[in-house]
């Protein structure tokens, strides 16, 4: 399975430079880290799914000595690796551009992971369900918009809860992050299991 994860990373090849350029572009325009990390991770994942659809990778990787469980699990694991790579890149680029750590950086990183977990939990099972069909392109667009919308929703929801709701119930912002992270993680794990079930019964055309 490790090889499948590695494949998901190296298949982009020179496209990684494009991703880096996009990342710097967004950061130069002073976009929030939560937005840049979530969006760029989603773009990389979409590209991985797209490459597979483009060449009917379902047929290729299912004919190679891998189980469907491994193929699905590799993709879900890849998101974590891609997130880690992009988050590291954002932190590094941020350091270079602004020459300082931002205090809210950790919250932004965790926030982007929550958004990625939730969007992945919704969209990945659909990607496996509708794989090899023309609807895939539309699903990719929905996924990207879900991530973009998710970052804004998360941002404003956090601000509202932090300023209005949490003080009234005596809860700190950190608790909010812990609860949200756990919920997102549970959904992601549930989605992972669901995708394995879906893919195991899928007919590869």
């Amino acid at each position: 399975m490790l090889h499948l994860i590695k494949k998901d990373l190296v298949m982009h090849k020179l496209a990684w430079f494009t991703f880096l350029a996009m990342l710097i572009f967004f950061m130069l325009f002073d976009k929030n880290q939560i937005f840049v990390i979530a969006l760029m991770s989603a773009v990389v994942m979409t590209n991985a799914f797209y490459y597979e659809e483009d060449i009917n990778g379902h047929k290729l990787w299912n004919a190679l000595p891998y189980t469907r469980n491994e193929i699905v699990s590799a993709r879900y694991s890849s998101l974590l690796i891609v997130f880690f790579v992009i988050a590291t890149a954002v932190i590094m680029v941020g350091l270079v551009l602004k020459n300082e750590w931002e205090l809210g950086l950790l919250q932004e990183v965790i926030g982007s992971l929550i958004v990625l977990f939730l969007a992945g939990a919704v969209c990945f099972p659909l990607f496996f369900w509708f794989g090899q069909k023309n609807t895939m392109f539309m699903l990719f667009v929905i996924y990207i918009f879900l991530v973009i919308g998710g970052t804004y929703a998360f941002y404003y929801l956090y601000r509202y809860m932090n300023q209005s709701l949490l003080p009234s119930i005596n809860l700190s912002g950190s608790w909010l992050f812990v609860i949200a992270s756990l919920m997102a993680l549970c959904m992601y794990l549930f989605s992972w299991r669901l995708s394995v079930k879906i893919y195991q019964t899928k007919e590869i055309l």
């Binding site: 483009d54 060449i55 009917n56 047929k59 290729l60 004919a63 190679l64 000595p65 891998y66």
Partner: peptide
């Protein structure tokens, strides 16, 4: 699967 080699009629190599 380890013991099988396959050749499909369609294009399954990364462009």
């Amino acid at each position: 699967k380890k013991r099988i080699g396959f050749v499909f009629d369609d294009d399954i190599l990364y462009k």
